[in-house]
Design a protein around this nucleic acid. Structure first.
Lengths: 115, 115
DNA sequence: GCGCTGTCTCGACGCCTGTCGAATCAGACA
DNA sequence: TGTCTGATTCGACAGGCGTCGAGACAGCGC
């Protein structure tokens, strides 16, 4: 079975509507954890807001006071969490956001207006 | 009227609209980090979906295979992240979600439909 | 082929975090 | 007052995580 087999997780509309099942919590928490570091949150923003929908690693690295390996490690974490995709084109590697995943997380946090 | 005195962070509309400033990333990442643990994500769901808007610790603890102190530790993390509020009434302590914070995070993750 | 540049992987080093048992604090009740 | 229950704090331990330097891999250009 592939990991994506049971993506029933995408069903869950909102934290506030019903109790989140244990499996759903286990499946989604890594994505939140990935966003739980300021560097990765900023990386995610730079990638998601990049014009053309993608951005080169060579544009990401100089934006931080961190070494290349460290940025690469954070990017791998975002990739493992399903938040971004990477593609090598010649010398450079380009990253792009996965809007489906972002929307899933946003939907989970959306609370009814009532409260 | 001062809606949110020191919450200038609440300004930021979406990750994908512009680069997230360093201070905003530093201010918001703890909230994502707090949701980055499956136990806390489930706690958050139980609190946010509780009828009456609040739930007793005595109803949260038995839902997990964890000791009281551990649950208490996770609840304190959620409190420190600004995601929940606690109030003691007599013997019991009740937790309730802070929808403003949840909506802020949801807005940050909301990506335009275009992509 | 050779070297150069960009990116990733590998080890290693502290710090942070999740978990527990024991102790402590806050109220209720007899 | 004393005691009991619910919740938190404290101290300690193992494991995870962010960071770095050194090295390896992938393409490009000479």
């Amino acid at each position: 079975m592939s990991k994506q087999a049971a993506t029933d997780v995408s069903c869950c509309p909102s934290l506030a509507e019903r109790h989140l099942p244990t499996e759903a919590a286990a499946a989604l928490s890594p994505a939140f954890k990935a966003l739980g570091d300021p560097v990765r949150l900023q990386l995610m923003s730079m990638i998601a807001s990049a014009e053309g929908g993608e951005i080169c690693v060579c544009d990401l690295t100089p934006a931080f006071d961190l070494t290349g390996p460290t940025i690469s490690h954070h990017l791998r974490t975002l990739r493992a969490a399903g938040l971004v995709d990477a593609e090598r084109r010649g010398t450079w590697v380009y990253y792009r956001a996965r809007p489906t995943m972002l929307r899933q997380l946003a939907a989970l946090l959306t609370v009814p207006e009532g409260r």
